[in-house]
Design a protein around this nucleic acid. Sequence first.
DNA 1: TTACTTAATCACAAAAAACTGCATACTTGT
DNA 2: ACAAGTATGCAGTTTTTTGTGATTAAGTAA
Lengths: 110, 110
Amino acid sequence: MIVFSKDKCAVGYALNTIGGKWKLPVLWILSQNGTLRYNELKKSVTGITNMMLTSSLKELEESGLVNRVQYNEIPPRVEYSLTEIGEKFLPVLDEVAKWGEQLMNLNRKA
Amino acid sequence: MIVFSKDKCAVGYALNTIGGKWKLPVLWILSQNGTLRYNELKKSVTGITNMMLTSSLKELEESGLVNRVQYNEIPPRVEYSLTEIGEKFLPVLDEVAKWGEQLMNLNRKA
DNA sequence: TTACTTAATCACAAAAAACTGCATACTTGT
DNA sequence: ACAAGTATGCAGTTTTTTGTGATTAAGTAA
């Protein structure tokens, strides 16, 4: 019988990276809008708090999905955008979406 | 500026369906082994507790990813397997895995 | 001088998810 | 009579994740 080992699982790694309540919304907004400042993100991701936005962005940056560019101006300006590997994730999301739709349709009927 | 709406998002729906700590492991084990009894699943998904296995299976069944067949024998016998839409998810997972590997490689270097 | 703006950050509170360990029902083997 | 095996269920607790609301620093416009 085949046993599950979490360690080397790329799927687990991927899903951890985008896991949590807000990372996917943030990624999606960035994919639709290109480069955005912190405040613009805050407005676009409806309902997100400062804390969650900050920590989501931080984790996304650490895992290499998001670029963060800080301009030393006053008032502060920081711009976020998707990295190359972040962009590469979009077609994958698309596949997930297609499957998700099929599932939604199935469950609507039932 | 484009705003995120959670409701109609197929990606969100999909990721909720397979979200949580154990659903993915359970799905993967089923995909590798075909039909399994409760106890066999328990042994294969290392570290899972009865409670989490039961609730994961229940949710997966409710969302249509897993079949549950109960034989009225003593001692009880219940067999689990992937449904059609459950099987259809595997190639999607494969795409996720490919991207996940790229990401892992990037982050190993950095 | 005072208020305003921006991108965070922190201590604390609340809510959600997961874990522990025991309980059950019924029948077969000892 | 008694233990063993099977697929769950549940109360109570811990752990993890999110949310709240206030706070900072430094310049610019009023």
